[in-house]
């Protein structure tokens, strides 16, 4: 019984039932499949984070973002500048209480180096409806190369709790043909 000491003092010497052994082998093999699947996807799959990241101050990240906005702003939407950076370029997106800055306009089928950082607390970059979710830290700059594959209007929802205005923090990314 599980609540009494093993009746056989040398329980390690007991043979293992075949049913159990077969299940252990299956479960172990399945674990290996799942383990190597992650490694395989790094080669064969198209969705992997590069893990490229830097330490950066809020001031420096703001500076870089503003440089991009000044060179590539195409229009305004309310207070938000809409920026259409050239394909292949470095694109910056600021997270702060409680908005994403600026609005980006990307071209379908082109790739961009997207830089994310926060100026204050942690935020969550949740791109909807495609459903890509990445954590954004203050003091760290996360870089990922994205390639929008469908045109349309995307929302950037904040999905890390960031205070009382958290649920108002929505940004926008346009993807044009």
């Amino acid at each position: 019984m599980a609540i009494t000491p093993p009746s056989n003092l040398l329980w390690w010497r007991e043979p293992v039932a075949r049913t159990e052994l077969v299940w252990i082998i299956i479960a172990f093999a399945w674990g290996l499949v799942m383990f190597f699947m992650m490694i395989y996807w790094h080669g064969a799959g198209e969705q992997n984070l590069s893990n490229e990241a830097y330490r950066i101050s809020a001031e420096r990240f703001t500076e870089k973002t503003n440089e991009m906005i000044e060179s590539h702003e195409v229009r305004k939407e309310g207070n938000f500048p809409v920026v259409r950076p050239p394909p292949g370029s470095d694109v910056y997106l600021i997270a702060r209480l409680w908005h994403w800055w600026p609005i980006l306009e990307l071209e379908k089928g082109q790739s961009y180096r997207l830089h994310l950082s926060s100026l204050d607390w942690q935020h969550g970059f949740s791109l909807q409806p495609t459903n890509i979710n990445v954590q954004v830290h203050p003091g760290y700059e996360l870089v990922m190369t994205v390639e929008p594959d469908r045109a349309g209007e995307y929302a950037v929802v904040c999905n890390e709790f960031c205070g009382i205005g958290h649920h108002l923090m929505v940004g926008k990314i346009y993807v044009t043909e």
Binding site: Q47, N48, L49, G124, N133, Q135
Partner: peptide, 12 residues
């Protein structure tokens, strides 16, 4: 908890 699949689930 799969490294890449977490991208479509993290913090949802």
């Amino acid at each position: 908890g799969t490294e890449q699949i977490n991208l479509i689930m993290h913090n949802t």
